[in-house]
Write a protein that binds this DNA or RNA. Structure first.
Lengths: 217, 217
DNA sequence: CGGAATCCTCTTCGATACTG
DNA sequence: CAGTATCGAAGAGGATTCCG
């Protein structure tokens, strides 16, 4: 094994990039921030990575203590972040926040996964609008379920269906993208045509929308 | 010119990394956050980059609107960040903050430049301790002068000697590293032995130190 | 079938040499 | 000083194969 390439600078940014600055690495962390993932799950969300590279990255992340394998007692073995790895979230949110202006409207043929909303929504979350709120908003986008829990002016997100919620939004990915991502479909229209199914409190849904810049999600 | 490699994902983090995720790019941005820099300055602060790569990165950053060349009317032509580029600062600070645990004490033979303090100090700044303060702390580390301006609970940094200041710390890089970076020399001892020269208010200097985690800088 | 190791080709990097 | 040119070395990407 060749001596890993590094910047040789006594600077915490350079050190951080020595660890997670290689191609794909931060995207792997992004996907693991949404929850534990198996090798195959990661492959599916990272088209083009190549099996060897993903394996190498995971091994490196494991060796450096950012990723661990879930306890075999649980269902399928999977990769998940350690506490150290999870602490990267603010940095990823900051980068995602910066990168929002690069999301041009015509989506082209890029991949889009509902699980990326965890990061995208944290980047767009307006904490000052959440004061005093304590609500849970559930989403079902295609077969991917997640929820937003707003409490203490903070946004916590999770996967799956929460035990209780103020409202539940059910949509297929295509209309979701059109309404909340590229804005090519009006929210009103989606609701009228049944592409957006809302269960629970209409007012909670409106409050949810208000927590993010333009629209919500 | 081959079509630039990109992740092909509709995700603002992936888009951000398409732009600034390549090797060296964020370190170039870091150095430009401290102030305008000429080609040579950047080369000196990025040992190992190779002239062609630096040229390629700068060209790319210029094309994508993160970097511009300073107006020729000023002294030497230099590279500097655009507004878009400067907005990367919070993301770099967040990454640098995360990376602090990687700064082991024995510094080895890594490069260290005083200008990296701009980022390092922003990463370590404790905003809650700055409430009500409005002070300027000047530093002269070797031949590099910079200052910290704490106002409105925020930390603003700049290069050069500020027109006024509450205190001025003068040190050579080696003792500075020992005292403030790797902790191998006690602050008291440095002051007593004249390695740290303090001009102005001793109390202001103590307040300055209090604004950062362990020690100050 | 999920999780990799292997092979091979292509691109990028890094170091040095060279030019305006 | 500010880059361009060149070339060997390292890394990335894709397919295939192996292992459990």
């Amino acid at each position: 094994m060749p001596p890993k390439r590094n910047y040789g600078q006594f600077c915490s940014l350079a050190r951080a990039l020595d660890l997670v600055g290689e191609r794909w690495t931060l995207l792997i962390v992004r996907d693991l921030l949404a929850g534990p993932r198996r090798y195959k799950d990661l492959m599916d969300g990272l088209p083009g990575i190549g099996a060897n590279l993903l394996a190498a990255r995971l091994k490196h992340l494991e060796e450096t203590g950012l990723v661990k394998r879930s306890n075999p007692q649980f269902a399928n073995k999977a990769y998940m972040l350690t506490d150290t790895g999870r602490k990267l979230e603010p940095a990823l949110v900051a980068l995602a926040d910066w990168g929002q202006f690069l999301l041009e409207h015509p989506q082209g043929k890029d991949l889009w996964l509902a699980q990326w909303n965890h990061l995208a929504l944290k980047a767009r979350f307006k904490a000052e609008k959440a004061a005093g709120l304590d609500e849970i908003y559930a989403f079902q986008i295609g077969d991917y379920a997640y929820y937003l829990w707003v409490t203490n002016g903070k946004l916590v997100t999770g996967e799956g269906r929460p035990p209780k919620f103020q409202c539940l939004i059910t949509m297929e990915p295509e209309p979701f993208i059109k309404v909340f991502v590229d804005g090519s479909l009006e929210l009103e229209e989606a609701m009228n045509s049944g592409l957006l199914e809302l269960e629970g409190s209409q007012e909670a849904f409106q409050r949810c929308l208000g927590l993010f810049t333009g629209e919500g999600g």
